[in-house]
Design a protein around this nucleic acid. Sequence first.
DNA 1: TGTACATCAGTGAACGCGCGTTCACTGATGTAC
DNA 2: TGTACATCAGTGAACGCGCGTTCACTGATGTAC
Lengths: 203, 203
Amino acid sequence: MDTGDTYHHGDLRRALMEGALACIRDSGLEGLSLRRVASAAGVSHTAPYHHFESKGELVRALGYEGLGRLDERMGAAEAEAGGDPLERLLAIGAAYVTFAVDRPDYYAAMRAPEMAQPHAGGAVEEHGESWERLVRAVVACQGTGSLPAGDPTVLAVGMWSLVHGLAELWATSPIPALPAAARGCGPFTEAVLRAMVRVGAAD
Amino acid sequence: MDTGDTYHHGDLRRALMEGALACIRDSGLEGLSLRRVASAAGVSHTAPYHHFESKGELVRALGYEGLGRLDERMGAAEAEAGGDPLERLLAIGAAYVTFAVDRPDYYAAMRAPEMAQPHAGGAVEEHGESWERLVRAVVACQGTGSLPAGDPTVLAVGMWSLVHGLAELWATSPIPALPAAARGCGPFTEAVLRAMVRVGAAD
DNA sequence: TGTACATCAGTGAACGCGCGTTCACTGATGTAC
DNA sequence: TGTACATCAGTGAACGCGCGTTCACTGATGTAC
């Protein structure tokens, strides 16, 4: 009960990851330091090395976890959206932006330089499942004619860029300055996505 | 001729900025250090303080210069595109992506945390001229019916997000991994923009 | 159930690093008379 | 054209900082017999 609190910590690995996320939330990815994380977990600054080979490995662990969470959110949103392919596509996109906005900690870790380390090939490959989910959704839309025919990966890149950029703009805060964004991130995102997807329509 | 090379340097301020850009190109924004830049310019590491109050001011100088260059490029592309509003809009967007891809140094500086410093309100405000250029282009498209009616800022945010995200994806290198991107950044970007702008069209 | 021992998960001291920044300085340049 | 002087733009030594990482260590835990 004396040393029990810190020694043979229940799950220090987990605690370190949560602490690191909090640290990123507070001071950004560049403010993340192993020493800070360790001290936040109430542990000496060398203790993390029993759970992560290096700082980079911690970041990578967070990044991969984030990728997983993101894909879960996208999957859940897609399922909730019902049967219409375009609605499903929009739901996926909106989920991406929402995730990035309310989990900036994971989002930052996912895009950390350390994530490019293991094998160059990079993010699309890491985002493998999500990317395939997106392509599938685009193809489905093409099937019902709600998106024009043609190379689906080109449209998928467009959609990916759109939500990625939107998330980025929210994060760096120019968007909240817009009057139209007063309705909040979710609704505004949906408005933008719908507007973009209707572009060129006869209306 | 002896000390002439370094002492009362022709234009050390400029040399430092160029050195800093090179440093960012080589090792990214987080690899930028005043000491490295100074030594690359062949000058003691305290010399920069006669030209910049702090490291942050250097970064900000680069950022604002980058914003200017970007807007010039967008303006030139727009003018070259001729009279059709949609072509002009596409040219603006393509110029954004191209700039980000071939001047990653400026692009990084523009999005540096130091740029948020002066007044919260942020990037859209800094991007003031470019943002207005974009909105004008969108309104023109709505005028000729090549974009649907409605709040032009929503569409402008969509376009901005699209090119911003596309630039980001090129930079973090998932895009080059796509087979469709083999044709190169410029043509691929144009294909994506055209595809997105045709979404929903009767085709 | 006890004992011996390997392993695990902590500790604190120490290392070397590059960094931004301050300081007192000095030599070159430009200007007023 | 000369001289005196202010200013400008460099210099090198020094500061303190937080960082990642290594090291030898120690006490707790789990396991084999």
